[in-house]
Design a protein around this nucleic acid. Structure first.
Lengths: 223, 223
DNA sequence: CGGTGGGTTGAGGTATTTCAAGGCTCGTGG
DNA sequence: CCACGAGCCTTGAAATACCTCAACCCACCG
């Protein structure tokens, strides 16, 4: 379960592409597997590690005291998350399915960034990417209709994880709903509408394998 | 109207406190005044300057094609905004009232950051602060009720601009609504509810001067 | 003074939520 | 091997929070 290996350079370049210059510096890496549903870190916990999804998927969310949940982001293969500028996590993160992660000690990153401007630039870039996503998501949550939200979600997932024309969603309807600020029933209804319109189709009985039949029409719904 | 002065060090230290180390480096600064309602920069425009509010207030927003608007943030005295990591603005910014800004050339910042790690850290910190705000706002927009949203807004403004127990809001109800993902009528009704509950009071007839009479009760509504 | 730009409040409409029922899949244990 | 329960999803019907439309008030200003 806990495979503490110092990854060879070939692995690193393959999985740390997003960190650019990081792949050329010596940083302690280790792999770790999380079972479906397992908590990776909790909100307000000290941020000891930064995580990269090797295989699987994760969700980051905030909770209100009465249980209402807002998922801020999904993390898919290749994504890096859990990077915090202050030393504290602002979300709880959980594995959506059985997931393999690469872990990097956070302090080693910020320490290297002190002298290596390329690493510093990478940290800023990653934070800026997260910021952009959050800004776009505010518009979605504040002003879009349920159909527009689901359309935007599908386009985002299509962009991030479609292989061979099929998008295999790792997350359930409730996760999607909590990401989009809706209920799972509303998400389900919106998907049914899109199916009826011939914009998408389901593969198999699982309802998680989606084929986009009419991307242009979906994009129209996004605005 | 266009006062292009190289500010002296005393001014700088007073107004660039948030940029920490920046106040110790030579950076080209100039002042500029914007009339109420004037556009400061547009979404998707190249980001030439970074802005600091000296006096007044501004709003940053995104528009959908049919005019729906989501305000991502309000910028009050002392705030820095318009900082973009890529070279393009992600929001449109407008002056809410007549406003005086301090402008800094963006490229001069990123250039200095290449060699000065303290400046690089400041840029990362400011981006991280923006990210935190956006993350919290996603929770508000996705999961809070109208009363909770207005309560959270009042607490935020109270924290940022209350002087002598009175909070003088520069923005109108529509701005508040577009910030909170509501309509102006819903905001107005929520404020009336809070007034009826004895949680806040209005000063004068303008409806923009608010006194918080029961901060604890307001905080309860925030969760 | 009339017009314009806020702001409030009421009445009615509607998108989304809530509540409820039922179906399908899959893993587990008899 | 089949029965059974749990998890997930869909769909319908009813409830509701918020929006829309409309009227009105007040302050400000040319």
């Amino acid at each position: 379960m806990f495979v503490n290996l110092n990854a060879g350079p070939s692995n690193r370049s393959r999985f740390l592409g997003e960190l650019g210059s990081l792949s050329q510096t010596e940083i302690v890496l280790s792999e770790f597997k999380y079972r479906r549903g397992a908590e990776i870190f909790g909100e307000a916990e000290p941020a000891e590690y930064v995580y990269q999804v090797i295989d699987g998927a994760a969700r980051s969310y905030k909770l209100l005291s009465d249980g209402r949940r807002q998922i801020g982001a999904f993390h898919l293969a290749g994504d890096i998350f859990g990077l915090e500028n202050g030393g504290v996590h602002r979300f709880t993160a959980e594995a959506i399915v059985d997931t393999t992660m690469r872990l990097v000690k956070r302090v080693s990153l910020t320490h290297v960034a002190e002298s290596d401007t390329a690493v510093a630039r990478d940290l800023l870039n990653m934070t800026a990417i997260n910021l952009r996503h959050a800004e776009d998501h505010m518009l979605l949550l504040g002003r879009k209709t349920s159909l527009e939200r689901v359309a935007a979600f599908l386009l985002e997932m299509d962009h991030r994880l479609t292989a061979a024309g099929v998008m295999a969603l790792p997350m359930c309807r409730r996760d999607i709903a909590d990401y989009l600020g809706l209920t799972l029933e509303t998400v389900s209804r919106a998907l049914s509408v899109l199916e009826d319109k011939g914009i998408l189709g389901f593969l198999g009985q699982t309802q998680r394998q989606i084929v986009l039949l009419d991307r242009p029409k979906l994009a129209e719904l996004d605005l």
